[in-house]
């Protein structure tokens, strides 16, 4: 009796979760298939009403748009470079934090915590000014630097949690088995830490892909403007009458990489998020 009641509750709960997570996504996909005329004339309702479907037209328009193509290219390039560099630097730091005794460890951890809580907008003004002085305003580098430093805390936490899980004995056993320190690191530590490095990379990529504040304030042209910023500026002359379906198509395209990553690496992301934020 009680058991079935519980079961029903869980099924309803699952349905609610699925609805919560997927409904807005379904909505934006549905919106992207409404024709632009229908939007101008107003077409309330979840699905395109009959005769107002646009087929793939919105997607074709978006992918033909130079600004959009540039933005996608910028986003992919900037996010990937920041991710690789950030993860390399974080791996070194995390290894030291998890495995070595050195003075200043607390300082590193506290800095990471402060950065994780840092209000990014308060950096906009000084960075805007500094980057213009250094001549890296509106360049990839101008975005890569802040992305790297703001993803470092999460990457360091995730990775040091993974490094801590690798038993010390593993390294010592390798040394006793005849390995040099480098061999022990290469043949034992790196393969064992690989999932952690990978997880940290995914989370870093998400952050960089998601960023908006730096994207709009440290760029001025399509030279370096990433996708979220480009979307928000997308033919946005009249903020109350945007080309909604076109934007929706752009949003769907920008979301596809994230969905693919989530689909393939769900387990790793969950492990990384929870180990990086709350230790078990």
């Amino acid at each position: 009796m009680n058991m079935t009641k519980n079961r029903v509750g869980i099924v309803i709960g699952c349905a609610l979760i699925l609805g919560w997570c997927l409904l807005p996504v379904a909505w934006i996909i549905s919106l992207s298939f409404k024709s632009q005329e229908a939007i101008t004339n107003g077409s309330p309702g979840f699905f395109p009403s009959s005769g107002t479907g646009a087929g793939w037209k919105n997607y074709e328009d978006v992918l033909k748009d130079d600004q959009f193509k540039h933005a996608i290219f910028n986003s992919i390039g900037i996010s990937l470079i920041s991710t690789v560099l950030s993860v390399i630097i974080a791996t070194l730091a995390a290894y030291a934090i998890a495995r070595l005794e050195f003075r200043g460890k607390r300082f590193v951890l506290t800095t990471a915590l402060v950065i994780a809580m840092f209000p990014v907008v308060s950096l906009v003004s000084p960075l805007f000014d500094m980057w213009r002085t250094f001549g890296i305003y509106d360049t990839w580098l101008g975005l890569i630097l802040p992305y790297m430093s703001f993803t470092l805390p999460l990457a360091i936490w995730t990775l040091s949690a993974f490094f801590r899980e690798i038993p010390w004995e593993m390294e010592q056993a390798a040394q006793v088995d005849g390995a040099t320190s480098w061999q022990a690191f290469r043949k034992v530590i790196v393969p064992l830490a690989a999932p952690g490095v990978f997880t940290a990379a995914i989370l870093t990529f998400f952050f960089a892909w998601n960023d908006f504040v730096f994207g709009i304030s440290l760029t001025s042209t399509e030279n370096a403007r990433p996708i979220p910023a480009a979307l928000s500026f997308f033919v946005g002359a009249d903020p109350f009458n945007r080309p909604a379906s076109l934007l929706a198509a752009g949003a769907v395209v920008a979301t596809i990489p994230i969905i693919v990553i989530v689909l393939f690496f769900q387990r790793k992301i969950v492990a990384g998020l929870t180990s990086g934020a709350v230790k078990g």
Partner: peptide
């Protein structure tokens, strides 16, 4: 777990758009 990660991964700007249009009185 996969679906719960989708909102997390989606760009905030996209989420903003989706909800803005959802609340819009014309569309």
């Amino acid at each position: 777990r996969t679906s719960i990660l989708i909102p997390y991964g989606i760009i905030t700007v996209v989420s903003g758009f989706a909800w803005q249009f959802a609340f819009s009185n014309s569309n």
